[in-house]
Every structure is written in C-alpha cells, then in structure tokens.
Design a protein around this nucleic acid. Structure first.
Lengths: 157, 157
DNA sequence: TATTGTTATACTCTATAACTATA
DNA sequence: TATAGTTATAGAGTATAACAATA
C-alpha cells in the first residue's frame, strides 16, 4: 500500500500525460482524429466486431463509439454488415482503404515513438505497457455506477 | 529499441488510459474541474508561481492556463499578486480556502487510488509514476514546433 | 521588437437523455 | 420489458489568433 504523497505524485503524472497524447494526435493524417485512429487500431488488432464490443475496448460510451464509427464509415474505412445473430447489430469490418489508412497511422506513430523513446530499452517500453494495462484493469474491476449496466452480475457492497 | 507491435500496443494503452482519467474526474467536488484540480495541486506542491510557469508544469498553452486560473480565482481559491520583478506578470498564491479545497481533493483522489490499487505494492505504484514521468520527459526533450518558443536555445536538425 | 497574459473562436472528446428497432 | 444502436444536446479541455500592457 502506497502512501498519500506517492498517490498525489501519480495523479500529477496522470495529469501531465495529456501532453504526450496531444503530441501523438498532432501527427495524425487529415480526416483521421484520435477517435478514428483508436477504432481503426482495434479493428486491425482484434478483427471484425460490433459497436458494443468496440465501445468496451475503447472504454467509452456507445454513443461516442457510434459517432466515431460513423465518421470513419463516411470516409470509406469501414463497412457495416448485418449481424446474422442479432438484427439490432451490425458487424464492423475494415475496408482495404481502412487498412491502408491504418498502415499509415501505424507507420507515423511507430516512427514518433521510436524517435522519442530512442533511449528506452525494449524491456522498459514493455514495463510501461504492462503497468498501464494493469492500471486500467484495476479500475475496470471496480466499475463506477455509470459504467455498470443494470444486468451485470456484479456484487457491490 | 522496441519493435512495431510493442509500440502499437503502447499506443492502445495510451488510448484506453482516458477511462482512468475520467473516473478520477467524476469524484471531483462541484465547481472543481480537472483543470482546476491540476492547478491547485501544482500550487500546493511547488508553491507560488506565475501563469507561465504553471503552463509549463501543466504542459498546456498559456491561454488554457489563464482560463483555469480565472476559474479558481473566481471561487476564491487563489489570489493574484503583482510580480515585483515583472509588471506583466502576477504571482499566484493559494488562499486558505484554496488549501482547504486542495485537501479535500487530495483526500478524495487518495482514497480512490487506495481502493483501486489496493493490490498494488508500494514499489509498483512507484514504478508507474517513474515511467510516466520519464515518458513525459522523453517527449519534452524533443518539443514539437508548437511548443518550442522562438527564442529557445534548441538545436534541431 | 519581444514577451506575458487575456479573450474570442473553433474543434475534439465525452456523457446524458430521448428515440427507433429488434430480442 | 430489455437491449443495440443512433442522434441531439451540453460541458470540459485544448489550440490558434488577435489584442493589451510591459520589458
């Protein structure tokens, strides 16, 4: 268990992290916002999926996800197919143009990180990745009221 | 040097980090936004300072900082004194009410982190803090054009 | 002429609520 | 009745540009 000063320092690091995010946003291609990039990345990493699943992975509300998807669908980067298992849903799939866009994104972000983190070891990059994944998991394990759907089987005191 | 897949994974962690930030935002007292909290925290940690210095620590534009400060000044949480060394600047100082507000903030965020990170060791919390500090430093060392003032003595190729 | 700070404007991301269609 | 998704609205954070005051 960490002490108060350590938690406060961590919070300040969280706050300052925005600067890193914004610099990554600045290198995105025209028409591809941060939200669009996140959707393309997840579809490329995990394959076809529904809006709801995408919203979970993005950790944002479905309404937000819907808008992001509408944005990239307008640009022809994803197609929406009927879901044979559920008429209310559609399956999202990257188009060839979407994959090209994703490749461009990946090239730019990889290049930027390789430059900025040139003095980081492979292991250090991995450590940060693992710790941030665990951080998110630690928060997901205790979902707030807003994130907890009515039917979720969660025991809360 | 990490490989492409590792950088891509790191980027996805960066993207999902927003969920953690938003949960921390939700517990803030009424009238105290995330920006206000960051200003109060930095004034509490580093003491009286000018807007420009605060903008550096926040890693946002001075115009943004100015708005945040105006917000908390309206609420009586900071005073602005003339800077004897420079008539264009004013020195920001926490008021007693501001310190009370900061204490309340600190209590809430510490409590939330202690709950969510209850199974993290002191050392693991420290590691995340250090890695995020280093991440920001790695980006600060290569400032983008937008962040680099005209007079800065930086050698860029 | 350069710098500090403020203000107006615009853009992105986000959640809430109301709504449609389907389960 | 409950769930998947869409859309309208509102709020927060941010950058850019134009401006005022001072160095």
């Amino acid at each position: 268990m960490a002490d108060r000063a350590q938690y406060e320092e961590l919070i300040r690091q969280f706050s300052a992290f925005g600067a890193v995010k914004r610099e990554l946003t600045r290198i995105l291609p025209v028409g591809c916002s941060s939200g669009s990039a996140a959707v393309l990345s997840l579809l490329g990493r995990y394959g076809d999926m529904r809006i709801g699943r995408l919203a979970e992975l993005l950790a944002v509300d479905m309404s937000v996800t819907s808008r992001h998807v509408a944005h990239i669908a307008e640009r022809g980067w994803v197609d929406r197919f009927p879901d044979p298992a559920d008429g209310r849903s559609r399956i999202l799939r990257l188009t060839p143009a979407g994959r090209t866009q994703l490749d461009e994104l990946s090239e730019r972000t990889t290049h930027l990180l390789a430059d900025r983190l040139s003095d980081w070891t492979d292991d250090e990059v991995g450590q940060l990745s693992v710790l941030m994944a665990r951080l998110r998991a630690s928060f997901d394990d205790h979902p707030s009221a807003q994130e907890r759907p009515a039917g979720a089987s969660l025991i809360t005191t």
